[in-house]
Design a binder for these strands. Structure first.
Lengths: 145, 145
DNA sequence: TATTGTTATACTCTATAACTATA
DNA sequence: TATAGTTATAGAGTATAACAATA
């Protein structure tokens, strides 16, 4: 009568959660490895990658990274001292500083992105095209919830 | 004649990598959120979760977490000072200290694990049983590479 | 008054190197 | 001599609170 309601005890779901955990670990390791190849920390690599898509105010970086704005100051400081990022004034609001990647920073971001290919090539390389389509559709479905 | 060889430029693969990145972020956020509900950091939660499966020497915790053994001292110190973990002597080797969860620690680990249900319930909840089976099989295939 | 970025502070995680007690 | 755990140290990320410049 009372249908089992909690996914808590569903072995299949638990197995999938477990597997996703493994994927998360593997992805995370690859990301850190790619970053450290360029002597960057994970946080620095994330900020650089973000800015390579679009320059933005310090405050918005913090929103994207879900951390306090005060932290961004130090991270951008370190990227700037290495010539990968620069701070520009915002003509529209003199309080705002726009962080933007330098040419060197753009190149580093591109190489960093390519470094993730190790992830694409290995775990994903074993899947056929059809399987990758299935995986894509399932992940999209998941993330749209 | 020369078949396109690099997955680097394959849009489908890139899309899947992008989606996996989103899943990684979501999973990571849920994990941190569950940990901070118990006033634990991510590293503390990971160690506690590990020990809840099986008590082990300090050194092995470091291997599992892929960090230096010296770091584990502090993390276990903090867990121990909160009564979640204790250090026991190893009868077989007096150099070794076995870290083990207390009853309180076991309960916390269990609650932490249940906290991940938010992840299982929401993103995974939208998938049918058949879709979860497909996802499981694809992830297994990926991780076996 | 409110907002942007910064500084100051304290805590945690991290790697490295040196130390201790065992083996 | 080799190994397990620890300590000491320094760098980085994090949150909190207070500050200057600007809106």
């Amino acid at each position: 009568m009372a249908a089992s309601r909690t996914p808590r005890t569903d072995p299949l779901t638990l197995e999938v959660v477990e597997l996703i955990g493994s994927v998360v670990n593997r992805y995370h390791d690859e990301y850190e490895r790619a970053a450290s190849k360029h002597a960057l920390t994970g946080a620095q690599a994330r900020v650089l990658g973000l800015l390579s898509l679009e320059p933005m105010p310090m405050r918005r970086i913090a929103q994207k990274l879900k951390c306090e704005p005060s932290n961004i100051t130090g991270i951008v400081d370190r990227l700037e001292s290495r010539g990968l990022v620069e701070r520009r004034p915002d003509p529209a609001d003199r309080r705002v500083k726009l962080a933007a990647p330098t040419e060197d920073g753009k190149r580093t971001a591109r190489e960093l992105r390519d470094g993730l290919d190790d992830f694409a090539r290995e775990p994903l390389g074993t899947l056929s095209r059809e399987q990758r389509v299935s995986l894509r559709d399932l992940l999209k479905l998941m993330l749209d919830s």
